[in-house]
Design a protein around this nucleic acid. Structure first.
Lengths: 343, 343
DNA sequence: GTGAAAGCGCTAACAT
DNA sequence: ATGTTAGCGCTTTCAC
């Protein structure tokens, strides 16, 4: 027995296909009696409309593709969640693909999705600043081929589209200022996303805060870590060579790992070394001491970017100018930083 | 300008649609010259074959739907990764949906995917033992409507399909035995997945190990925790009321949280209280002390279940009997448990 | 070497 | 109240 289609049902009742279609869609054109019979039959035999056929006919899938660099990062999971909320509310479904930090995978995924599987795309690119130029060429093809795109977080000037970004400059500034205000002087940065704009903006904010206090910027305090690097090993150099009293880490897992390593080496957190991390996720609250984190409001970002994209999808005829929304971060203060001195 | 189709191209060159189709697919039927012209034009104008149309024609999407309970759980991410590897190798794409612990969401997702978006489904159900019966009815409709299903980890007898499961009974037994062998006597269980078969099997294994040493099972040592519960609060009761010297936790995040809480209350890990957790993820190795974990070999499970499903998809005519594969766990011993005494 | 026609499953404008 | 037809974009068999 093959899959049940309108054609089968029509044959079974010896009526036309369009009659069956109308009956199943409860059209007033069809007599109550026939409708009842057909609907009952359809139900009992688990008739499912073929979405592929419907999509073809409508020239729309009501699917939105979401491409993120890393599913293991809580920030992206939060954004995904926000996107999904809005999309589902507005009648769209999400096809999400993690590129697992691979730019080839990302390119392949985008190409694949662009072949008509989705009405629009939401992208946070894995590309580093040096890769982005080539990579953006490929993305532009998407734009050329009429598929609306919105980007968030990891965006690029090279693509003209709606964007939602985090105020990473300010985030880096605020975090650093908090270190300084609580008496830290020598602040290291641990970045698992070196060579991205995000990482650079945060570092620029950090520099600004240092400058305000006339603390010279020291390149050696910036520690880029690769995905397979031995963090403990790398960190030990910085810890040995400098009188570090603050560490700013650019994602949650890295922050937890850094704190663990620091404690294992006998430092007191926050008194010897204070720690601030990015992404206020599941763990920050639970480890000891609980971690002071920068919240990027992932869910809100997801909601915003989904709304921007869907608005555009639904107003294809009257294209609005592209928008870039900037979302401010919040510093969630916990116990991995010292208290602000009262005066 | 609308989207470029074979029709447009045909009009542009004043040839038939089928000629263009053949030219683009590099058929030998078409003259080199015309092929070259058409291919060049298609390339330059970013022609993309409409996948929806192709899917309709082929009555196949080469998509596999994957439905998992929780994207924040590293085990499922690993499985997803394994599925993706195999699927991509064998020419399939993955549409993954997290049900975020909601049974309604899971049901909705399954229904949605069953409308022709995928050729087959891989499911790990969020349903608890009491929910599964009703829920399985819905899933059976999928089976009835000809869409092949494979399940992993959270499976049910009520559905007849290929399955890959973890030997959770043995895992619970081995972990408990390890506690006992290292001198622990009063072992608590913290389960965020209470009322699932998985949780029950692990607990049965735990009971068997206790029984072998003539230690009576004490219901009060089993702590189910809900997603929004205050773990610290709940754990404090068990810790106060009993002389716990071992805790077995059923997912990685919970394990990390438990250790943090235990340490914060002044216990030494592993000497006062030993800890073993399930899912050997990103964190276990990095926290202090590093955690002894049960590895479920998620990627392998993913590969296996993907192969089972794809085999079935590609042998629709000669259906094999359904298979259930059982995957053994490994205990990854680290520093949250005491050493096995030499004798 | 090129084209016409049918069909995948569905809907909707237009008959009857 | 029911049926006919055309068409969404594509492939493929069968003519020419």
């Amino acid at each position: 027995m093959s899959k049940l289609t309108l054609k089968n049902i029509a044959a079974h009742f010896k009526v036309s296909i369009s009659t069956v279609s109308k009956a199943i869609n409860d059209s007033h054109e069809i007599s109550q009696k026939l409708k009842a019979k057909i609907q009952k039959f359809a139900q009992e035999n688990h008739y499912k409309p073929n979405k592929v056929a419907i999509n073809l006919r409508n020239r729309s899938t009501r699917n939105i593709g979401v491409v993120i660099p890393n599913i293991l990062n809580y920030f992206f999971v939060q954004v995904l969640y926000g996107i999904e909320q809005v999309a589902n509310n507005r009648g769209y479904n999400i096809i999400s693909c993690a590129s697992n930090q691979s730019i080839e995978k990302e390119a392949k995924t985008l190409e694949l999705l662009s072949y008509g599987s989705v009405d629009g795309l939401i992208i946070s690119s894995v590309a580093t600043e040096s890769q982005i130029k080539n990579h953006a060429e490929g993305m532009k093809e998407l734009v050329d081929s009429q598929i609306p795109i919105a980007m968030f977080d990891r965006v690029t000037d090279l693509i003209d589209c709606d964007k939602v970004i985090v105020d990473d400059f300010e985030a880096g500034y605020k975090a650093t200022k908090y270190f300084l205000d609580t008496g830290c002087q020598t602040i290291a940065i641990v970045t698992p996303i070196d060579h991205t704009e995000i990482s650079r903006f945060r570092t620029e904010g950090y520099k600004k805060a240092l400058k305000e206090r006339n603390i010279p910027f020291d390149e050696k305090l910036i520690l880029p870590v690769g995905i397979d690097d031995d963090l403990e090993f790398l960190l030990s150099f910085i810890l040995n060579d400098n009188q570090i009293d603050g560490i700013l880490a650019f994602d949650e897992i890295t922050t937890v790992k850094v704190m663990t390593i620091v404690k294992a080496r006998g430092y007191q957190v926050p008194n010897d070394i204070s720690i601030i991390g990015f992404t206020n996720g599941q763990l920050s609250k639970y480890v000891t001491p609980s971690l002071t984190m920068v919240s990027q409001h992932g869910a809100y970002i997801g909601e915003t970017v989904a709304n921007l994209l869907i608005n555009r999808l639904e107003n294809k005829e009257v294209p609005e100018p592209f928008e870039t929304r900037v979302v401010k971060t919040s510093l969630i203060v916990r116990d991995s930083t010292r208290k602000i001195p009262m005066d």
